[in-house]
Computed example of a mutant assay.
Amino acid sequence: MEYLQEDCELSPNTIGKHLKNIKMFMNSAVEDAVTDCIGHRQKHFKVIREEIFKFILC
């Protein structure tokens, strides 16, 4: 995570979006019996989110 935030300069929400997509594909692969790897269901592999504030300038 530090690599993605510091070196790649990705925001926590962007990283969370990618993790969510990876988990979705991994769950689909487990359901379709393509793989039996379930490491993505562990506690430390969670999607992160950060509250954002949007401004509208008039």
Rank of each mutant, 00 (worst) to 15 (best):
K54H: 12
G39S: 09
V47Y: 02
E6N: 10
T14E: 07
L4A: 04
I52K: 13
V34W: 08
N27F: 05
E2F: 11
G16R: 02
L10V: 02
E51M: 15
C37T: 03
H44G: 14
K23E: 00
I52C: 13
N21K: 05
N21P: 03
K20T: 00
T35D: 01
K23D: 01
E9V: 14
A33M: 11
K46G: 00
Y3K: 01
I38P: 07
E9N: 10
I15W: 01
M24T: 02
F45P: 03
C8E: 10
R41S: 06
Y3S: 05
D36N: 06
I38S: 11
E6K: 12
I38A: 08
I15H: 02
D7V: 12
I15V: 04
C58W: 15
N13Y: 11
L57A: 09
G16N: 04
F55S: 09
H18Y: 12
L4W: 05
M26R: 02
R41E: 08
L57H: 10
D7S: 08
D32E: 09
C58D: 15
N21R: 05
V34L: 08
F45Y: 12
K23L: 04
I22D: 01
L57Y: 15
T14D: 03
A29G: 05
L57I: 14
G16P: 06
Q42I: 13
F45I: 14
E2V: 11
G16E: 04
L4H: 01
N21S: 07
C37P: 01
I15D: 01
V47P: 02
L57D: 13
I56S: 09
I56Q: 10
N27C: 03
T35R: 03
E2H: 05
E9K: 15
K17D: 05
I56G: 07
E2Q: 10
M24Y: 10
C58R: 14
P12N: 10
F53A: 15
Q5E: 10
Q42E: 13
A29I: 00
E31V: 04
I22Y: 03
F45W: 14
I56P: 06
P12W: 01
L4D: 00
K17G: 01
V47E: 01
K23M: 03
E6A: 08
L10F: 08
E31F: 08
L4V: 01
I38T: 14
M26S: 08
H40Y: 02
F25S: 03
I22N: 00
N27V: 00
L10K: 06
